[in-house]
Design a protein around this nucleic acid. Structure first.
Lengths: 213, 213
DNA sequence: TAGATTGTTAATCGATTAACAATC
DNA sequence: TAGATTGTTAATCGATTAACAATC
């Protein structure tokens, strides 16, 4: 379980996974010690910002020395809540749902994908990497019975809210939403959106933008 | 081609696709006219912010009336650069690359996926939805000869920078990067990242967060 | 000890919100 | 015209950066 901190801004929270990643790369390179100054070169955040960010959670460094890379990464891991295990299901076993089911990254992060769900009778009953595909009709019941804490929505937008409601009825904790819609949940169910269409449109905008400098 | 504006902050730019999406939904619902006040309810941006955002690009509304939904969406479409056509390639024909190749959304946005690339000899030569899979070795040459403007990177991180360099050598305009690494490009080649791992870690953090209110 | 670098406060910058005159 | 709502300026809020005393 991650420690709990309050009043951390989303700007800071979204940098934490980046710190975690950069520090992991440093560990791979057998770098044991790093200063905020050196880290600023790697991350392109300012040294000042790095120190500010880290001090939201406590003093992990040592004056005159810097930070111990491995220790710092572990601390950030704890803050992020790594180490816990969660059962998760993917709803929508189309191309994207299948790609995510095949994503090896999950188990490394303590996420166990224990089932897929779909409406298409042609694929219900099949398996993807030993994971069964069930009928969406059984979603709430299955999630309740199997201690599912995370739902991953890879359905078309038209059914995304209905799926969300089914998941929330099963007392899950969070939804990773790939459908291009803002789903509504009770406030105790957290939502993280991956809006690919918006990301692509942002790229299109940047392509046409006059260069700034 | 999109119009060119300068000094628009990324905060504003990233809201544009959202406006575009919400306005599209309103058109589907046959809503013809909307005030910033009404739009604020739908988007959960403040009315003030909406008016500020839109006025970065010009006055699209009418005092006492509000905005014409269809006209406003079209204007935002122009700002985003919709209407242009771009040839694009996907590099990395694994699960994610295939899922993206199958994503019907692209052609609607003027993006033509004309080829996939991979290193795996078992799949080079195959097709996905009539799109050929070529050897990565031929990437630069192919991109030059076929007026490729967008590269979509779905490879493991280990080769992502090399692929980036091959793409940049072919004079492309932008990269949509799904590899969990910060790729480096000359400044005229724009990059939009989709870092799924970071998104997932953010969700994990939120799961453990004490509720704020 | 002297040098380095953090933790933390204060200053700056930028983004959001509020307010209101202009005007449809 | 009166009411509504924009466009836009000014005020506020929050996030980033700078500075430096504390201290390893």
């Amino acid at each position: 379980m991650g420690k709990n901190y309050t009043n951390i801004s989303m700007a800071v929270i979204r940098r934490l996974p980046k710190y975690y990643r950069y520090l992991g790369e440093l560990i791979d390179k057998e770098v044991y010690r790093i200063s905020s100054r050196e880290l600023s070169v790697i991350t392109s955040f300012t040294a000042s910002q790095i120190r500010q960010d880290l001090n939201c959670f406590g003093g992990f460094g040592q004056q005159g020395y810097g930070y111990n890379v491995e220790e710092l990464r572990d601390e950030i891991g704890k803050i992020l809540g790594l180490g816990a295990n969660y059962n998760a299901v993917i709803v929508g076993a189309g191309n994207l749902g299948q790609a995510i089911a095949n994503y090896p990254y999950f188990s490394k992060r303590g996420i166990n994908i224990i089932a897929l769900f779909d409406t298409n009778p042609k694929i219900v009953g099949m398996k993807i990497r030993d994971i069964n595909i069930y009928d969406v009709e059984n979603l709430t019941e299955y999630a309740k019975e199997n201690n599912v804490k995370i739902g991953i929505i890879c359905t078309p937008e038209t059914v995304a809210q209905k799926i969300t409601d089914s998941l929330c009825a099963a007392d899950i904790k969070g939804i990773w939403n790939f459908a291009p819609i803002d789903i509504k949940t009770p406030k105790e169910v957290k939502v993280e959106n991956v809006h690919l269409g918006e990301s692509l449109l942002t790229l299109l905008y940047l392509l046409n933008e006059k260069d700034k400098d």
